[in-house]
């Protein structure tokens, strides 16, 4: 014999957007966790490093870097390197941190717990890594190392945002599939999927964020005409709106898969150590 579900008057009165509230709550406490001296020091290095590299190049050649060289350098340093490293340290511990800290059980027993944990951590990773990358961009432009660098500030801000959104969602997959090896697996994913598969001119690179970002970079900065014919295959032929949409779709798909895996996964008590 079974009884019907018990009414819970308070909890049955739901907030207008409970999913958003739970995501914001998790993002808030993940960001609070990031405000530690070691993480802030790492962020400071991330902000200064691109400008230091550009300044060293300027010092070497004795003049500002011309856009044809400076823009790709800036792209490799910020939307690729700074964003990737920031996301690796913020997104990879998605589940492992919770298991190690003993918080996983307390989050997972909430109605919106696992979804909130995934999306809240993703949001925190995007905000943290995006803020570091935008600060690095501002410093690089203010340093005046690249001729006309200020003209590409808006383009780079969008590339940073898309890079953070897409790659944070991508790194959510190793984080939920192999939580205890997530950092190593995420580095592998970055190298094999984003940089190896992303540079293969075949169907497989259509599923990478790097192809979309490269394509947007050359389209929005006018570098497409400067690319040698043999390298034209490394960028997509479709228009910028298509590339932006592709990153958004990839982000949604990666997060949906990660969510499904996270809802399905069970962690025996022995995993919490």
């Amino acid at each position: 014999m079974t009884t019907p579900p018990v009414d819970i008057p308070d909890a049955d009165r739901r907030a207008p957007l409970p999913a958003l509230a739970s995501i914001a709550a998790v993002a808030g406490f993940q960001l609070a966790r990031l405000l530690t001296p070691p993480r802030l020091a790492l962020a400071a290095i991330g902000i200064v490093f691109p400008t230091a590299v550009l300044a060293a190049a300027v010092n070497g050649i004795g003049t500002s870097i011309e856009p044809r060289l400076g823009i790709p350098m800036l792209y490799l340093l910020i939307p690729e390197m700074v964003c990737m490293l920031g996301l690796l340290v913020t997104m990879s511990p998605l589940v492992a941190d919770e298991l190690e800290r003993g918080t996983w059980v307390h989050v997972a027993v909430r109605p919106g717990g696992r979804r909130g944990l995934l999306l809240g951590t993703w949001l925190a990773a995007v905000i943290w890594s995006g803020a570091v990358a935008l600060a690095a961009l501002a410093l690089a432009i203010l340093s005046d190392c690249i001729e006309g660098g200020a003209r590409v500030a808006g383009t780079f801000a969008v590339l940073i945002l898309l890079s953070c959104m897409g790659r944070a969602a991508l790194f959510a997959l190793p984080a939920v599939i192999v939580p205890k090896r997530a950092l190593v697996a995420s580095v592998g994913v970055a190298l094999v999927i984003e940089y190896l598969a992303g540079l293969i001119p075949a169907v497989v690179n259509q599923f990478t964020v790097s192809l979309r970002l490269r394509t947007l970079l050359v389209a929005w900065t006018g570098l497409r005409r400067d690319i040698p014919a043999e390298f034209q295959l490394l960028v997509d032929i479709n228009r910028p709106w298509y590339q932006v949409s592709a990153v958004l779709v990839l982000t949604a798909v990666f997060l949906a898969i990660a969510w499904a895996i996270l809802e399905w996964r069970q962690f025996p008590p022995s995993d919490e150590s």
Binding site: D10, R14, A15, P18, A21, S22, A25, G28, H106, R110
Partner: peptide, 14 residues
Amino acid sequence: LRSFGELHGLPADV
């Protein structure tokens, strides 16, 4: 307490 209440989707006043 507030964060975990939000994970339950409780309205702000409650």
